[in-house]
Structure formats: structure tokens, C-alpha cells
């Protein structure tokens, strides 16, 4: 019973904060509301027996990713005015209608046994020695060893890519060309 209460409290906090992320004018407020969403989701992970993921969610998402966001916001300056002109005609109403269609579709799928009734294929959530951490680790380093190695390559590529992109170049930019011509 208490699980249901916690779920509804945390889910409503997360949904309200997610709406706030979209609706807030100031990007800093959006980032702070994003932290609220992430921490409520971490609580939802705990009530679903995913203790390790809850910790990782707080450390990696709320700790690293949102701080990176705030860092870039501070670097570029807060820009509160947002153009209301639409380059594509009637983009915003169409986006909202499309969103409602997506919501109906996913809710339809979520309520159906033929879409959600897959069978267990790998190790169990409860059985086995050690806690949640050990079971996730065993799954990562046995069943998912090859994807794990591939993510190492992905991270190296991301590090190199961001260093190359953030490097300062002396070549004239497209803006300079436009201004001089």
C-alpha cells in the first residue's frame, strides 16, 4: 500500500516538474526542474528493486549531466526571450496534436498483454547471491560483455569529439564571410 502512495506522489512530482522543464522561460529553472524529475525517477527505481540504478541516476544524471547543462548555460549567458515566429507553419499546434497521438498509442500498447507479455530470458531479479549490485554486475560482465566494450569505444569517441569541437580555430567563420561579402 505504501508503495502505491509513494508511486503516486513521486510520479505526480515528476510529471509536474517535467511540464515545468518545457514551460519555464529561464533555462536555469528548466535545469533545476530537470533535477527534480531525475530524483523522483530515482525514487521510482528504488521501489522497483533497482537500488544501484537509483544511485547511478542521482550521481550521473543529477550530478554530472545537469551540472554540465548549468555550466554551459552560465558560459553562454541566460537567454530568456524566445522567438514566437514559426519557421514551419503551425508547428506548435501540430506538435501538440502529434504528442497526444503518441500518448494514446503508447498507452494503448502499455495496456495490452500481447505487447507487454514477454517471457523472462536472463538472470532473475531476486534469486542468486549478493545484492542488486552484484546481480547487475554479473549480467553486465557476462551477457552484456560485448555491448559493454562497445560503450567504452563510444565514450572514447565522445571525449575526442567534444575536445575537437571545443577547440578554438583561427579560420574565418561563416558569419564573417556573410558580413564581409
Amino acid at each position: 500500500m505504501s508503495e502505491v502512495v509513494i508511486f503516486f506522489i513521486m510520479a505526480s512530482i515528476a510529471l509536474c516538474a517535467a511540464l515545468g522543464v518545457v514551460l519555464a522561460r529561464n533555462p536555469v529553472h528548466s535545469a533545476l526542474l530537470l533535477v527534480t524529475v531525475l530524483i523522483s525517477i530515482a525514487v521510482l527505481f528504488i521501489i522497483q528493486d533497482a537500488q544501484l540504478l537509483a544511485a547511478v541516476q542521482v550521481i550521473v544524471y543529477a550530478g554530472a549531466i545537469v551540472v554540465l547543462f548549468l555550466f554551459v548555460i552560465m558560459l553562454l549567458g541566460v537567454d530568456e526571450k524566445e522567438s514566437l515566429t514559426e519557421p514551419v507553419k503551425a508547428q506548435r499546434p501540430v506538435a501538440i496534436v502529434l504528442g497526444l497521438v503518441v500518448l494514446a498509442e503508447v498507452l494503448f500498447l502499455a495496456g495490452h498483454q500481447w505487447a507487454t507479455g514477454a517471457q523472462q530470458s536472463r538472470g532473475s531479479l531476486q534469486v542468486g547471491d549478493g545484492g542488486n549490485v552484484e546481480r547487475v554486475a554479473r549480467s553486465l560482465f557476462t551477457d552484456f560483455l560485448w555491448p559493454f566494450e562497445v560503450t567504452a569505444v563510444l565514450l572514447v569517441a565522445a571525449v575526442i569529439g567534444s575536445v575537437v569541437l571545443a577547440r578554438r580555430s583561427n579560420k574565418p567563420t561563416i558569419d564573417d564571410e556573410v558580413e564581409t561579402s
Binding site: 522497483q48 528493486d49 533497482a50 544501484l52 540504478l53 547511478v56 541516476q57 550521473v60 544524471y61 554530472a64 549531466i65 554540465l68 547543462f69 554551459v72 507487454t116 514477454a118 517471457q119 523472462q120 530470458s121 536472463r122 538472470g123 532473475s124 531479479l125 531476486q126 542488486n132 546481480r135 547487475v136 554479473r138 549480467s139 553486465l140 551477457d143 552484456f144 555491448p147 560503450t151 563510444l154 565514450l155 569517441a157 565522445a158 571525449v159 569529439g161 567534444s162 575536445v163 569541437l165 571545443a166
Partner: peptide
């Protein structure tokens, strides 16, 4: 799904989503 199917691999896959999210944010913000 990991909880309802009693299957640990759902939690393992979330790790990969986290890694992709971190890489995407790093490159995107750059």
C-alpha cells in the same frame, strides 16, 4: 519490465542508455 518479468537484463540495459545519454550530452553541448 525488469521488475514485472523478474529479469535483471532490463536494469543492465539502462546502463547503456545512461552511457549514451552522457556521451550525447558531452558532444551536443560541445
Amino acid at each position: 519490465f525488469s521488475k514485472s518479468l523478474n529479469d535483471i537484463s532490463g536494469q543492465a540495459i539502462v546502463f547503456f542508455v545512461l552511457v549514451v545519454a552522457a556521451a550525447e550530452v558531452a558532444v551536443g553541448l560541445a
